[in-house]
Nucleic acid binder design. Structure first.
Lengths: 214, 214
DNA sequence: GCAAAAGTGTTGAGCTTACACCCATGA
DNA sequence: TCATGGGTGTAAGCTCAACACTTTTGC
């Protein structure tokens, strides 16, 4: 379950997108589904998640965290399947390079049709988690490149939380987080006063030990 | 992974306790471990968790939630094991009735020795989650019976969070939560002014849909 | 009456929110 | 010079922590 930011077709502002793969066999042949695959005996859970990501979409995550283990009896009509789902964030540069083909395509997170299995429910849950983590933890930076302006961070929050935020208060709030480092660089080329660039100095997201937030 | 409140041997105040089972075979034969067991083809994950609870300790949980899926390669020295761990809260009446035997025993959560497998780490993580959920959500009531005084709620919080809380402010905070209902009954038999009894009107904890808190 | 817990009131500190305002740049 | 987003200041309002105070019981 991968999230990335891409510019909206209409407004051009950053929006949440999700890569899906097309089912090429039954059940749910032809429908879109989350990328995934089996766990081998010699890899850990996050390793397996990364590998499946890489194999199906070619993406390398900048953040990876376990979402939930789904084990309902009737998730698949043919057999009992337990899925330990991970969710990942990838940076825009990665997302732009991603393989897109007949059977791998990006969709806007808020405009998905009916997916295979219980994948709509899984995505809803992941979206809920993403919003929660964003509201508390410092996770949004994994959706951005190394350098960013405070307005870009705000756009990420606005895209994910789907509401406008006060620029003045938001910048104070962000500048107060210790992992945010001011640089001496400015983003040139805009139409107006060039904004200062910042960087995130927190480490990439590992797993069950990033207990900064529920 | 079960939590319950029992009176401390020394102070008599409520404390967090955990039932553990003794390993009767290798690996880690003789060491204490979390109760658990295999998942059958015909039961959901929470059903399997409840069943294992029932079979090993005789307890029925008043709250049950998925904790995490642990899948490290070397969790067990003999074979690869993936454990989807649930955590549960049981009410004091249940906990008092629980089977205790040579191979099933209750331990204080803050005084555990070395356990089998990675179970110490799992318990640490569960404790962290419990504290987090307590601080935000309304979960503490699943550790209490149907009727309780506000002072009892405070004792639960003090036991789990391991710090004293202002009685005056705490009661206001609790009374402000909508799921708390005032009754017309009072707890008699104390040494001082009889406190009013309250009850919790929230439903028992289901799973991935109680999204009130991260 | 006295001790102690139950329960209420009040105040000040700190944080959030809303919004007025200045600054720097491209056109 | 003007429009626009970048960036700063500030006052109102809210929440929370501390603590003084009143109430009601057992002894």
């Amino acid at each position: 379950m991968i999230f990335a930011l891409r510019p909206s077709e209409c407004s051009g502002r950053p929006t949440l997108w999700i890569p899906l793969v097309r089912r090429i066999r039954e059940p749910f042949k032809g429908l879109w589904a989350l990328p995934g695959g089996p766990l081998t005996h010699s890899e850990s859970l996050p390793d397996a998640a990364s590998r499946n990501l890489q194999e199906t979409t070619g993406l390398a995550p900048s953040y990876l965290e376990q979402l939930y283990a789904f084990g309902g009896l009737h998730r698949s009509p043919t057999q009992r399947v337990v899925s330990i789902v991970y969710w990942a964030l990838v940076q825009p540069t990665e997302a732009a390079l991603a393989d897109e083909s007949e059977n791998v395509k990006w969709f806007r997170a808020d405009r998905l049709g009916e997916l295979a299995f219980d994948h709509n429910a899984i995505i809803d849950y992941a979206l809920w988690r993403l919003r929660n983590k964003m509201a508390y933890g410092s996770i949004a930076y994994h959706l951005l490149g190394e350098y960013f302006t405070l307005a870009q961070v705000r756009e990420v929050y606005e895209a994910v939380l789907d509401r406008e935020l006060d620029p003045a208060n938001f910048r104070r709030q962000v500048k107060a987080t210790p992992e945010i480092e001011e640089t001496d660089q400015y983003l040139q080329g805009g139409k107006h006063r060039p904004p200062r660039l910042y960087r995130f100095t927190g480490r990439p997201g590992l797993d069950p030990d990033n207990r900064s937030t529920p």
